[in-house]
Write a protein that binds this DNA or RNA. Structure first.
Length: 488
RNA sequence: GAGCCGAUAGCUCAGUAGGUAGAGCAGCGGACUUUUAAUCCGCGGGUCGAGGGUUCGAUUCCCUCUCGGCUCACCA
C-alpha cells in the first residue's frame, strides 16, 4: 500500500537531482510568472498563433523521438502539448530536457503553433524545472482506482481522476451559490464559536478537549444553533453560518466525524417561511451550478423544482407506510401497527415510537423532495409546539433520496417551556442517554430577555453536495475524509 | 460495535489444486526530428499487508492482527 521508500524509480530521480545541481540547475526553482493557462491558449489558438507564450504545469506524458520530443503539460485548466527540439533549444538544454520524468513540474516559454497533426503546441525555446518529482505518479491511463489510496493520498486522486477533481470544484461552487443565495436575501453571515463550554443544539455525543490557560474542559460544537439564536436576541434578524460540526459517532457512507452544516435563522419567520427558503435554495443552487433543477442520483431522476409536498409524520405513516389512520394517533396503535409488520418498537413514549416507526416504514420511500412536518415534542427540544396539539412541534425535515438533508422549525422562544424541555433532556441524560441535550443556563438567560419568533434551518452541506454530484459516499465529497492512520 | 468482502511490482490487474510469481503502463539501456496511450530492440524491479501455526517446503491452508470497502446498529 505504502510507497516503498527506496525503489528504482525513486533512486533514479534522486540521482537526477544531483546531476541537475552539478549542471547548475536548481531542481526546485521558480517563481514562473506571468504564465498563461493551457486551456485558454488552446481555445484562443487562432488569435494567438505565432506569439510567444509561457506555461507551467506537470508533465503527464512524454513522447521522445530522439532529437525531437513531445510532452503533455497539464495545469489546472487542462492540457497543452510541448514540442521540444534539440535544434531549437540547443544541445546542452536538450540533454537537461531528456532527464525530465513524468510528474515533474516545469515552466516553458516558446511560440504557439500547431503540429502537422493539428495539435496546438508550444514550440519550446526555453524551459525551467520548477519541481522535481521523486515519486512516480499513478499510471496515466489506469489512474488511481484503489479507494483507500484515493482517500489517503487525495492529491494523487485529484491528479489522476477527473471526476474527483470535478466533484470538488462543484462542491466549491455549491457552497459559493448557497452563500450568495443567503446574502442576496439580506442574511448576515456570522461565525460563532467552535469551542463550546456546553455542547448544545443537537442530539449527539461531542468531542472533548481542554483549555490549559482557562483550566477547563471544552467541547467541539455539535451545532451552532444556540449561539445563532443568541444573535436573534441581540437584534440581528437574518443570520447564517456555514461551518464544521463535530460529532463523536460512527463513520459510514453518510457520516464523517466532522461535517459541514449550514444554519440560517429568520426573525419573525416560522417553519413555513423556512420550508419555502429551503426548497428555493436547493433549486436555485442546482440551477446555478448544474444548470438544471432535475438531477440524477445513483440512476434515479430527482426533480428539485418547488414547491415540495408537505406531509405530517402521521400522514406519512398512513400514506407511505400503510398504517391505519387511527393507529398513528395512539401509542397502543403504533405498537399494533409495528407488531403486524414484524417490527419491534424499543422507545418509551408515543412520540418516540412514532418517529421510530416512521424511520423504519417511511424513510426509504421518500425519494423525491418532500417535507415531513410535525415532529414529536420529545425529540424536538428546541422547537415550538403546534398551537393545537402540544404533543407535536412545528418542525420539518426535507427528505431526498430517502435521506434527511436538513432540519428546521419554528424556534422555541418561550424561556419557561425551553427550561422544561432542557429539564426533560437532563432527566434523559441522567437515565443514560449520552446524546440528550445539556442544560444551558446561559442560553435560557438570553431567551429570558426576549427572542423574536423565528424560523430556523439546518442543512447538511455534504449530503447536499452528494446529491448534486451523484456521489454515493460522503467520503467522495470530503477532500480528506477521516481514516485510521496507516501503520503498515 | 457486528457480519461479509478485499490487500500480489510505482499504478492497473492476472496467477500459484502448497514447490518463493506474471502482464500492460511506468522505470533502465539503445534506435528514432511531427508524436497523440508514438513505435522498435534489449534489461532490471516483489520481504505476494503484518505476525504466528501446520508442513520437508506457505504468497497459496489455518489462526490472530492492521488497513480499507460494503451492509447493519447510532446519527445529519
Amino acid at each position: 500500500m505504502r510507497y516503498s521508500e527506496e525503489n528504482d524509480q525513486i533512486r533514479v530521480r534522486r540521482e537526477k537531482i544531483e546531476q541537475y545541481r552539478q549542471a547548475g540547475v536548481e531542481p526546485y526553482g521558480g517563481p514562473f510568472l506571468p504564465r498563461e493557462r493551457a486551456a485558454t491558449l488552446v481555445a484562443e489558438f487562432s488569435a494567438r498563433e505565432g506569439t510567444r507564450v509561457r506555461v507551467a504545469g506537470r508533465l503527464r506524458a512524454l513522447r521522445s523521438h530522439g532529437k525531437l520530443s513531445f510532452a503533455d503539460l497539464w495545469d489546472e485548466s487542462g492540457k497543452i502539448q510541448l514540442l521540444v527540439g534539440e535544434d531549437r533549444v540547443g544541445q546542452a538544454a536538450y540533454q537537461l530536457w531528456q532527464m525530465l520524468d513524468l510528474g515533474d513540474l516545469i515552466g516553458a516559454e516558446g511560440r504557439l503553433m500547431k503540429t502537422r497533426r493539428g495539435e496546438v503546441s508550444v514550440e519550446v525555446q526555453e524551459f525551467r524545472l520548477l519541481a522535481k518529482a521523486l515519486r512516480p505518479l499513478p499510471d496515466k491511463w489506469a489512474g488511481l482506482k484503489d479507494v483507500e489510496l484515493r482517500y489517503r493520498y487525495r492529491y494523487l486522486d485529484l491528479i489522476s481522476n477527473e471526476t474527483s477533481r470535478r466533484t470538488f470544484i462543484l462542491r466549491s461552487q455549491i457552497v459559493q451559490a448557497i452563500r450568495r443565495f443567503f446574502i442576496d436575501r439580506g442574511y448576515l453571515e456570522v461565525e460563532t464559536p467552535v469551542l463550546h463550554p456546553i455542547a448544545g443544539g443537537a442530539n449527539a455525543r461531542p468531542f472533548t478537549t481542554y483549555h490549559n490557560a482557562l483550566e477547563m474542559p471544552l467541547y467541539l460544537r455539535i451545532a451552532p444553533e444556540l449561539y445563532l439564536k443568541r444573535l436573534l436576541v441581540g437584534g440581528f434578524e437574518k443570520v447564517f453560518e456555514i461551518g464544521k460540526n463535530f460529532r463523536n459517532e460512527g463513520i459510514d457512507t453518510r457520516h464523517n466525524p466532522e461535517f459541514t452544516a449550514l444554519e440560517a435563522y429568520e426573525a419573525y419567520g416560522d417553519a413555513r417561511s423556512m420550508m419555502e427558503l429551503t426548497e428555493e435554495m436547493v433549486a436555485t443552487v442546482a440551477r446555478q451550478v448544474l444548470g438544471t433543477e432535475t438531477v440524477v442520483y445513483q440512476g434515479r431522476e430527482i426533480v428539485l423544482t418547488p414547491p415540495w409536498p408537505r406531509v405530517t409524520m402521521r400522514e406519512a405513516l398512513v400514506r407511505f407506510g400503510g398504517v391505519d389512520p387511527e393507529d398513528v394517533q395512539t401509542e397502543a396503535g403504533l405498537v399494533r401497527a409495528a407488531t403486524a409488520r414484524g417490527l419491534q418498537l424499543e422507545k418509551a413514549t408515543y412520540g418516540e415510537k412514532l418517529a421510530e416507526l416512521f424511520e423504519q416504514l417511511v424513510e426509504p420511500w421518500l425519494i423525491q423532495p418532500i417535507f415531513i412536518t410535525e415532529y414529536p415534542v420529545e425529540i424536538s427540544p428546541l422547537a415550538k409546539r403546534m398551537p393545537d396539539d402540544p404533543r407535536f412541534t412545528d418542525r420539518f425535515e426535507p427528505y431526498i433520496c430517502g435521506q434527511e438533508i436538513g432540519n428546521g422549525f419554528s424556534e422555541l422562544n418561550d424561556p419557561i417551556d425551553q427550561r422544561e424541555r432542557f429539564l426533560a433532556q437532563a432527566a434523559a441524560r441522567q437515565a443514560g442517554d449520552e446524546e440528550a441535550h445539556m442544560m444551558d443556563e446561559d442560553f435560557l438567560r438570553a431567551l429570558e430577555y426576549g427572542m423574536p419568533p423565528a424560523g430556523g434551518l439546518g442543512i447538511g452541506i455534504d449530503r447536499l453536495v452528494m446529491l448534486l454530484t451523484d456521489s454515493p459516499s460522503i467520503r467522495d465529497v470530503l477532500l480528506f475524509p477521516q481514516l485510521r492512520p496507516d501503520e503498515r
